[in-house]
Design a protein around this nucleic acid. Structure first.
Length: 656
DNA sequence: CTGTCGTCACTTTTT
DNA sequence: GTGACGACAG
């Protein structure tokens, strides 16, 4: 029985059934990218008799991988075992390879993956050894540079100045501790492939069909890795949209998408041009904006939807007024509005159909306050404040210490987490002492003579800590992982009830590891956790207005979207970092934001904004002026008449 | 070694 | 406006 493709349009069918060697699918926003990818996978199995085990589908998140597996499974009516298909991220693939063959690149079998915070801590400790004059506050920058450096391992491109001494010391420490960072998950398999062609060929022989999602966000290492993985006999099918590449700050390079046609022979390029999401006005506005970019493959999206309402522009005198204005509009939308004469104008929306998107988390503050005041339910996705010191940050180092007490990195993380009883200087001293004695921190704590460094007050709390550790080490042989975590949380005074429905994430996460004592489940559990980001995930069912960054909104859609804080300096964001910011990337981000909207798009800005402890004046974002003026309507602000209204026709002269 | 004060930095974050 | 770091005084 062949797969029913009747729900697809011509371009999608083309993409699903293409038999060419290498295929590039350009899938603009709302064109059914995920569907096409799932259909392609199912089609290969069902209609082309491809063995599931010879297919590899690479997604960018574990969540996407999961969804993908479900969709394919549904399309195949659960007939075939989709577990045979390799669906996962580059990183999980790399990890799988390293678990099997890691010894070939010098890894001991029980290596662990460094978390982001651990990486920063490690760099700080390496930094004080190698470049003592460098302030530790810039450790994050160094982490970024180390990552860049690894990212360019096999490329001619030169990298920003990173002292070799720092790099080699960092690498040496990783090796010593049997740790690898996220980049190593790609880099080491890549090296492994290059040095052991027979391993590479085993992989090549297994995977004949390679499907890659979000190809525009691939980085140099992933690109090279994919090249190694796809042998001459392989068929490479990649999908993405260069206009939605917004992860350059993490090393993603949209150039790889743009040069796909030169990189691979016999490429067939198919563009999905039909947008099923937005009104024509929204789509055209967004496309007019993105057309200002030059690093792209020009293509025009069409929509059979109605014209819809114009893009609404709100302008306020200050950030508080902006928030009030937005909330006032939301109230109208909820209540069902009859202001506009068109049919669309009489819609009313549910809370979960509305999103407020911004460039920077800080922007959300006034909006959540205003929403709270109006009694409108809302959820803020991400941000620092929303996860009060994510319990994960405390529990994981603890678990790691239980598994390996001599893991100084984890042990010092515990010490730092303990109510500031140990500051960095003390820990550094203890670490130095440990190194002098060629032992671990843990051993130092067991030795009687550290009086000079630790006052009685501290020693008291140490004893508590140590006896707690010892107790846990014993108990983990008997109790379940979930019980162990619960006990640790209790011991650390962490408020994290595992069974609480507010934390289903923890509950679900520990679920697969509930068999047998914690001790046996721990290694695998830690591995799973290392590849997962806790991120407060967006709940589409919650009856609440959603507040999040444009980055976080990628891949989502909402009937109503408010893009707020649209001021020069903020969006495009030029405030931070060392080098010049990439205007084209910011514009892509703006485009991603606009194209989240299905029916209504509101843009709002403020003349002044309180940010980083000072009031800043700013002009409206230059991106607003890139929208055709006739597609914009200015929503008058009755309350603050002082706010200058900018007539649509005059906009162009006021910007840039 | 410890406490205090001035300074500097602050994006976005699928892994 | 915050929080972490580093310099300096005690």
């Amino acid at each position: 029985m062949s797969l029913d493709l009747s729900s697809l349009n011509y371009a999608q069918i083309d993409a699903v059934t293409a038999i060419d060697e290498n295929i590039l699918i350009i899938a603009g926003p709302g064109t059914g990218k995920t569907q096409t990818l799932a259909f392609r996978t199912a089609y290969l199995i069902r209609s082309k008799d491809v063995s599931p085990a010879s297919i590899i589908a690479i997604t960018f998140t574990n969540k996407a991988a999961q969804e993908m597996r479900e969709r394919v499974s549904n399309l195949l009516c659960n007939e075939c075992n989709t577990a045979d298909i390799w669906i996962g991220t580059f990183h999980s693939l790399g990890l799988a390879i390293l678990r099997e063959e890691g010894h070939r690149v010098g890894l001991r079998p029980d290596f662990l993956i460094l978390s982001e915070s651990e990486q920063i801590e490690l760099v700080k400790s390496v930094l004080s050894d190698t470049l003592p004059k460098e302030p530790l506050i810039r450790a994050k920058r160094w982490v970024q540079r180390l990552s860049e450096r690894k990212n360019h391992t096999f490329s001619s491109q030169s990298v920003s100045d990173l002292p070799d001494i720092l790099f080699s010391a960092y690498e040496h420490r990783l090796e010593e501790l049997n740790l690898i960072d996220f980049d190593d998950l790609i880099l080491k398999p890549l090296i492994l492939f290059k040095e052991n062609p027979e391993v590479r060929d085993t992989c090549r022989n297994r995977f004949c069909h390679l499907l890659v999602d979000e190809y525009q966000d691939i980085n140099n290492l992933q690109y090279q890795f994919l090249k190694e993985l796809s042998g001459p006999a392989a068929s490479l099918w990649v999908i993405g949209d260069a206009d939605q590449a917004i992860y350059a700050f993490r090393g993603a390079n949209v150039k790889h998408f743009l040069k796909f046609q030169q990189d691979y022979p016999d490429v067939r390029t198919i563009a999905l041009k039909e947008n099923y999401r937005s009104t024509r006005t929204i789509l055209t506005s967004a496309q007019t904006v993105i057309a200002h970019n030059s690093d792209r493959i020009p293509h025009t999206l069409t929509s059979s939807a109605s014209t819809g309402l114009p893009v609404h522009l709100l302008q306020a005198a200050n950030d508080k007024a902006e928030a009030r204005l937005v909330v006032k509009e939301i109230e109208k939308l909820i209540g069902g509005i009859r202001m506009e004469s068109s049919f669309e104008g009489s819609d009313s929306f549910g809370f979960n159909e509305i999103a407020i998107l911004y460039r920077l988390h800080h922007i959300s503050r006034f909006f959540s306050e205003a929403l709270k005041q109006s009694g409108i339910p809302y959820q803020v996705v991400g941000g620092v404040s929303s996860q009060p010191d994510s319990a994960m940050e405390y529990v994981v180092p603890f678990l790691k210490t239980l598994l390996n007490p001599h893991d100084d990195l984890s042990f010092s993380a515990i010490l730092q987490a303990m109510d500031n009883k140990f500051d960095r200087t003390t820990i550094t001293q203890l670490l130095d002492l440990a190194r002098d004695r060629e032992g671990s921190l843990y051993q130092i704590f067991h030795s009687p003579k550290i009086d000079g460094l630790l006052d009685p007050y501290r020693i008291d709390s140490d004893h508590k800590l140590l006896s707690f550790l010892h107790r846990m080490q014993k108990e983990m042989l008997a109790i379940s992982l979930r019980e162990l975590i619960a006990t640790i949380c209790q011991g650390l005074n962490l408020n994290m009830p595992l069974e609480d429905e507010n934390h289903p994430w923890w509950f679900l996460l520990t679920e697969p590891f509930s068999d047998g004592p914690a001790h046996d489940q721990l290694p695998e559990f830690l591995e799973t956790v290392a590849l997962l980001k806790e991120g407060e995930t967006y709940n589409s069912k919650a009856e609440a207005v959603t507040l999040m960054t444009v980055h976080a909104a990628k891949g989502l859609e909402f009937p109503v979207v408010f893009m707020v804080g649209l001021e020069s300096g903020i969006f495009p964001c030029t405030e931070f970092g060392e080098g010049p910011s990439d205007l084209e990337e910011e514009r892509r981000l703006f485009y991603v934001g606009m194209t989240r909207a299905k029916k209504r798009l509101y843009l709002s800005c403020s003349q002044s904004r309180h940010l980083f402890g000072e009031n800043r004046e700013a002009a409206p974002s230059s991106f607003i002026s890139e929208i055709p003026p006739e597609m914009i309507t200015v929503v008058p602000d009755h309350k603050s008449a002082k706010a200058k209204k900018i007539p649509a026709g005059k906009q162009r002269s006021l910007f840039t």
